[in-house]
Nucleic acid binder design. Sequence first.
DNA 1: TTGGGTGTTGAGTA
DNA 2: ATACTCAACACCCA
Length: 275
Amino acid sequence: MPELPEVETIRRTLKRFILDKTIEEIIVYWPNIVKYPDDVEEFKHMLIGQTFRDIKRSGKFLRFELDHHVLLSHLRMEGKYSVHDQTEPLAKHTHIIFKFTNGEELRYHDVRKFGTMHVFPKGKEFEQKPLLQLGPDPFEREFTLPYFQEKLGRTSRSIKAALLDQTIVAGLGNIYVDETLFKAGVHPAKKANELTVSEIKAIKKFATITLQEAVEQGGTTIRSYVSSDGEMGMFQQELFVYGQENEACKNCGDLIVKIKLAGRGTHICTTCQKE
DNA sequence: TTGGGTGTTGAGTA
DNA sequence: ATACTCAACACCCA
């Protein structure tokens, strides 16, 4: 569920709770979440005794920086972090616990168990999967018009599929791709390499604006997303097309329709977004 | 009741 | 290279 704005909100709220906290013990109830190292005991060994120094973000990945290692965490559809006193009862679907030396603990909760974690020595995290192939997010300096033009010009896939491709631009998911393409007035089925320069400029501009505004609103809560202090996002009030099927387009009044594209539910106004 | 859909992504196939 | 299906898993709703 979380896309860039939700991950960024989680990053900011979680920082307040875990910086300078030291890991004393780790409990893993669902080992499949730990992708690297493949041995869970080694995963624990690399982190125990270390202190959280910072939390950063790359696209939809959280990067927990400790003294000597970095924990990469991808929330996929339903991953959540929260901090509790160790005496509080565990919620259902809590799969990994990082116990601190101060009696608190960081809990990873994930109803669908799709989330992933990787641990690498500090500085090595960008040299291998999963960050190696990740493109820049719209807030990074590398996300320039020439870069974006070059990437889009090299694929005949739909612009929807291209924007969901995290190696081209990181951080957009199904909600923000649909919102971006609506605001840019581009039909999601249009082939990426057939877009005009002005369409590419509009997509770039509205992707950045939409993500920025969603960060300012604390993300989008559709069903289950809450940040690490339990707060819901507010950006769902600002959605133009996502989840708005059979509602009137806020721009022209025609009905928003939902189609299937790139394997995903896709929301469009067929008047504002011509093929 | 049950099957299809869900804010993600990777693998396998043609 | 791309598109399509399936997989991981649990829950919700028509």
